[in-house]
Nucleic acid binder design. Sequence first.
DNA 1: TAGTGGTCTAGACCACTGG
DNA 2: CAGTGGTCTAGACCACTAA
Lengths: 215, 215
Amino acid sequence: MAKPVYQQVKTELLDLISQQESNTAIPSERALSQKFNVSRMTLRKAINELVDEGVLYRDTTRGTFVSEKGLIKKNSLRPSHYSRHLLYMTRRVFKDIAPILEIPVYEDLLRIVSKHNKDERVAYIDEIYVSKRRYMDDYQDIDHVFEAIESKDEFHIHQTFYPILVPVQFANLMEIALDRPIIMVESLYRTKKGEPIFLTKTFYNPEVETIEISN
Amino acid sequence: MAKPVYQQVKTELLDLISQQESNTAIPSERALSQKFNVSRMTLRKAINELVDEGVLYRDTTRGTFVSEKGLIKKNSLRPSHYSRHLLYMTRRVFKDIAPILEIPVYEDLLRIVSKHNKDERVAYIDEIYVSKRRYMDDYQDIDHVFEAIESKDEFHIHQTFYPILVPVQFANLMEIALDRPIIMVESLYRTKKGEPIFLTKTFYNPEVETIEISN
DNA sequence: TAGTGGTCTAGACCACTGG
DNA sequence: CAGTGGTCTAGACCACTAA
């Protein structure tokens, strides 16, 4: 009883779908709920999640169909993750970041800078800003910070996209020219209560990594 | 019986929530379902939508709470919409675009270029590419194309973000320098069946409009 | 007219939390 | 121990569409 029934139904549906052509109908909800021995509401919960993910689509009064392969949604808010390599960590006052994190301007912040490689090249670099105080209270360990940053649903994330010229200190790492335009994404992580925890700046290497979103 | 019950419940919940402080609990699902005279499942459907929209958040075993104002989700995939001003429309072959729209390379395409103003300045410019044949068959009228582009849920949209230097022909319109880095977003609109319909390129003026996403 | 998805009900049991 | 959200059931009626 560890996993909910609808989760199990969902994986069974995925098996069934994998053997089916795109744009062909799956069996009706009533037929499937009998086949899997669950109520129609439970079956629908499983299908609804697959529809949300873009695996299936519905046509009211006609049926439910398998989506074209490759139309599965991407999750947008985080870059595809390659192995993280810590570059360095500094601790000092950042007068421009502190107000965003809603802490006193002269309180110490940590800046944690990492690169992420793809096929021997740097795909993106991120800077994580977190208050020294919060780091000590809640995390103590860099790996716990990384874990939190990559966790799902725990935070409200607000992202802003800026076009910039690659900063000199990163151009060399990315092996790109100094006058190269790149995209920097600023992400503010807040708890559900609205308390800001992390600010990250992610610098994408346009020769290696593109930002893509689908719905 | 025009609107489903859960929609009505949702608006009543919004009324109730609007008078409440952030991070305070709303009544329990059982209490609310009695209050509104609906089943708990129906009440939950209303709450679930508000949670998805970021208006409420849940804490299992503790309750459901009102989110901080200003943490409501933005929908990311489309720019905030200002009034559209058609600049020009051309019809010719675009050898690079045709393969993306899966039409013969030498078939005619329409390119529809518009600007979108915010406070007397150009916030962004978009180019819409659509096959001449499809335009005649399905739309006939530019306004129908605009309507389709702005419709919700009708299409699968895949977006790619590119950092570029502002194209010369747009720098003047945007009143920005020629060496200015900007973000160009390429959006491919497909039907649920996977058939590509529109390709759009949106050029954002970084001095007026920023791209923001929240979840 | 038969079949589809969309909605709705009135119950039920569970795991977990806080007092 | 009482209360919460999470899951689940076995029915039901509706609007719409395709044959």
